[in-house]
């Protein structure tokens, strides 16, 4: 049977208090590495950057873990560090340059290399909702991701994003509405296509 997460968190914090930070970080990577990397991807949508930011997150954890006071759950604290790193990156010049380059490539590809296979890929029903969520503006995307994909409660989202409960609730409602608008349009276009 898998050990409950809070037990593991307690073990990790014990390692920190006994000056075994390296071991604590290894344990944190085992516990949260996969989860954080996927979270980072939903923000930056680029694997190379996801790799770099995920590394940054754990190095920051190594540097700051002694400052963790236990006022929030360890998971929420790690999430807030990861999200801040992502947002820092999205605000950076580097990201804007890459985004521009990606868009140029996308335009070139869509005009020159559109094949039946790629069309099929785009229409893959299984990933339809994920694609739509990832296409939402960041402030709507992140609340959907944290609430539905990462199972965080409203309260936890408030803590992670440092926003008021009412703000989070409003964003969630608007995000759902946006998705609702986008979803039937896609279904309709598919029916038309048939």
């Amino acid at each position: 049977m898998e050990e409950p997460r809070h037990n593991k968190e307690r073990e990790i914090l014990k390692l920190v208090s006994s000056f075994q930070k390296e071991r604590a970080i290894t344990a944190l990577m085992d516990e949260y590495g996969e989860e954080i990397k996927r979270l980072v991807y939903t923000y930056v949508k680029n694997w190379a950057q996801t790799d770099d930011i995920t590394q940054d997150v754990f190095v920051t954890l190594y540097l700051k873990i002694e400052n963790f006071r236990g006022e929030s759950a360890l998971r929420s604290w790690i999430y807030s560090i990861a999200i801040n790193k992502c947002k820092d990156y999205l605000r950076s010049w580097h990201y804007r340059k890459i985004k521009l380059t990606d868009e140029i490539i996308k335009v070139t590809r869509s005009s020159n290399q559109s094949t039946p296979e790629t069309e099929l890929e785009l229409q893959d029903k299984k990933s339809e909702l994920s694609q739509l969520v990832l296409s939402l503006p960041l402030k709507y995307r992140e609340v959907i991701i944290l609430f539905y994909y990462k199972d965080l409660s409203i309260k936890e989202i408030c803590s992670v994003l440092n926003e008021k409960e009412s703000t989070i609730k409003t964003r969630l409602r608007r995000a759902r509405e946006s998705l609702k608008k986008l979803f039937p349009a896609k279904e309709g276009s598919e029916q038309l296509g048939r």
Binding site: R38, K126, L129, S130, I144, Y148
Partner: peptide, 11 residues
């Protein structure tokens, strides 16, 4: 949306 967790992971 409740199925997003599984779908997003696979995506």
């Amino acid at each position: 949306l409740k199925q997003l967790k599984q779908e997003m992971d696979a995506y």
